[in-house]
């Protein structure tokens, strides 16, 4: 095959994979801290809607992305308060966030359906003449941001004190608390972070990938991102590669030339076996207290 066709394919894979990566990175932090945020799908959607409205009205992509992160962080905060402070059910609360996000995005952006955003993101152009490599490095600044964030967030989790604290909070909250770590604060911050990143990922779809808003824009990308968190074994660097691998599966839809409705199944159907392999691996590495509320004053008594 022509090298430049492969280059196009890789570019498309990166375009499709970047929102997955951004959402995945935030969720890695909240799951590392012991909070599962099933609200990613709805948070991405509301981020996409708010980001689009903000960018469309101000003609500023930066403002769009910042608004999306703010609203995503707010949804994360709601989930965090419900789960961490009020000991609500993580599954139910996460699903709630997804539905609230889906519903609000439809209502808020109702009158923006069909409008097109004509603002280009700044591009960084290096290795322009090298096939394949150029697809990776001739990219807009948000993709570069995603690359850099993967590396920075990997470094923070595994090589800094705050990273150790986050992991301690997720793996053994009782011990973490005893050694002077504020479990609730760290869990809350990480959950807000997962929301903000999901908002950012959603805004990437509406501001750069599609440049428009349609109802239910993310069509399951948030759920795929949640699966990729497990597949990446909660490692931001692995997440970088796996997200783009899944971006390639989305890109296949265009290149495969089979029935579009069958092609659209591919990323979802492929997630299941990949998840199966990763889950077997993760059995030993998984975060043990994931999904359980941390109840400080009674934990010592009842060993909840």
């Amino acid at each position: 095959m022509d090298l430049w066709v492969i280059t196009l394919f890789v570019a498309l894979a990166i375009r499709m994979g970047t929102p997955l990566l951004l959402a995945c990175l935030g969720e890695i932090y909240s799951e590392r801290a012991g909070v599962l945020n099933l609200g990613i799908e709805g948070t991405m959607m509301l981020g996409a809607a708010i980001g689009f409205i903000a960018a469309y009205e101000t003609q500023s992509l930066l403002f769009g992305f910042l608004s999306a992160m703010a609203v995503g962080g707010l949804l994360g905060l709601i989930h965090g308060v419900v789960v961490v402070d009020l000991r609500g059910n993580q599954m139910i609360s996460g699903l709630a966030i997804t539905f609230v996000g889906m519903g609000l995005s439809s209502l808020i952006a109702h009158s923006y359906v069909g409008r097109v955003l004509n603002v280009d993101a700044p591009q960084i152009r290096v290795f322009e003449d090298v096939p394949i490599i150029s697809a990776i490095f001739c990219q807009n600044v948000v993709v570069y941001l995603a690359y850099i964030l993967s590396i920075v967030m990997w470094f923070i989790v595994f090589h800094t004190r705050i990273g150790i604290e986050i992991r301690a909070v997720g793996e053994n909250p009782i011990v973490a608390e005893a050694s002077g770590v504020n479990v609730e604060k760290i869990r809350l911050i990480c959950t807000v972070l997962s929301g903000a990143f999901a908002g950012l990922g959603g805004a990437y779809i509406s501001l750069i990938d599609m440049r428009s808003w349609t109802d239910l824009l993310t069509v399951g990308k948030g759920w795929v991102a949640l699966a990729l968190v497990i597949v990446s074994l909660w490692n931001p660097l692995f997440a970088l590669f796996i997200s783009y691998f899944f971006g390639a599966l989305y890109a296949f839809q265009v290149f495969l030339g089979i029935d579009i409705n069958l092609a659209k199944m591919i990323p979802y159907a492929a997630t299941i076996p990949v998840l199966a392999v990763a889950s077997k691996l993760a059995r030993r590495l998984g975060i043990p207290v994931l999904g359980k509320p941390y109840i400080r004053e009674e934990e010592a008594l009842h060993g909840v």
Binding site: G42, I78, V82, I92, S93, L95, A96, I97, T98, F99, V100, G101, M102, G103, L104, S105, S106, L107, H110, D215, L216
Partner: peptide, 13 residues
């Protein structure tokens, strides 16, 4: 769309 989703979400929350 959206009203039913908001209802469902708020109720779940």
């Amino acid at each position: 769309l959206g009203v039913t989703n908001v209802f469902t979400g708020v109720m779940l929350l």
